[in-house]
Design a protein around this nucleic acid. Sequence first.
DNA 1: CCCTAATGAGGCGTAATGAG
DNA 2: CTCATTACGCCTCATTAGGG
Lengths: 133, 133
Amino acid sequence: MAMAMAHQHRESSSDSINRHLDAGKYVRYTGEQVEALERVYAECPKPSSLRRQQLIRDCPILSNIEPKQINVWFQNRRCQEKQRKEASRLQTVNRKMTVMNKLLMEENDRLQKQVSQLVCENGFMRQQLHTVC
Amino acid sequence: MAMAMAHQHRESSSDSINRHLDAGKYVRYTGEQVEALERVYAECPKPSSLRRQQLIRDCPILSNIEPKQINVWFQNRRCQEKQRKEASRLQTVNRKMTVMNKLLMEENDRLQKQVSQLVCENGFMRQQLHTVC
DNA sequence: CCCTAATGAGGCGTAATGAG
DNA sequence: CTCATTACGCCTCATTAGGG
């Protein structure tokens, strides 16, 4: 019945490569492509349009990507870095604060004890002065 | 049973039918649409596929959106909330830590002064005891 | 630039199916 | 029957891409 039909093989003719070749708009770039782009990004996160065109020319791996897409890639890449950087900044600040907090509490404790000690000695001496006079 | 339903729906509205419908690709949903979706989201961030279909039926504003798109909307919405929540959590923790830190430093300061004071008194009395004996 | 819609990859749970 | 496999649906996550 319907259940049996359901398990017939569905025509999955959408290989990622075919998708790219026909009218499919959305493509994942290959590991190599991303790697190449990342290498450029590391040196220059904001390449000029000239630089981008050069990139496409020199790098055969990227030749099937449109200049506009390259531009979008860099925009998205910058955005991503910004977000990650902010997140990790907050994390770092957080960690440091935690450590600082701990140290302060320890110091606080130490001072508390010191105060008690001194107060104690103080009282003792005060008493001795009284008995002497 | 739920599976069977899902498959039936899959069969009835086959891929080929959907193809030409998503010819006009990327659309921003209107304020009203988003508002309606948000209202549902507030109560149920993860509606079942049945619930989503209901939603489309009851809500004329959403009738021109495909079930799949509704699903995508909820997925993206959940993702967004998660990110925002995490970010604001970190901010909050940070603020609290800052306050805590400040208080601790003040307390520390106070204790420092108290210690100096006590040490001073202490030295003085020690001297007095010496002169007396 | 920013926000967000759309897509692909990969993981998880489970119903269907086949082998023993 | 049980156990392993597998195909499917749904989810998250990261990524690509469209428009304001």
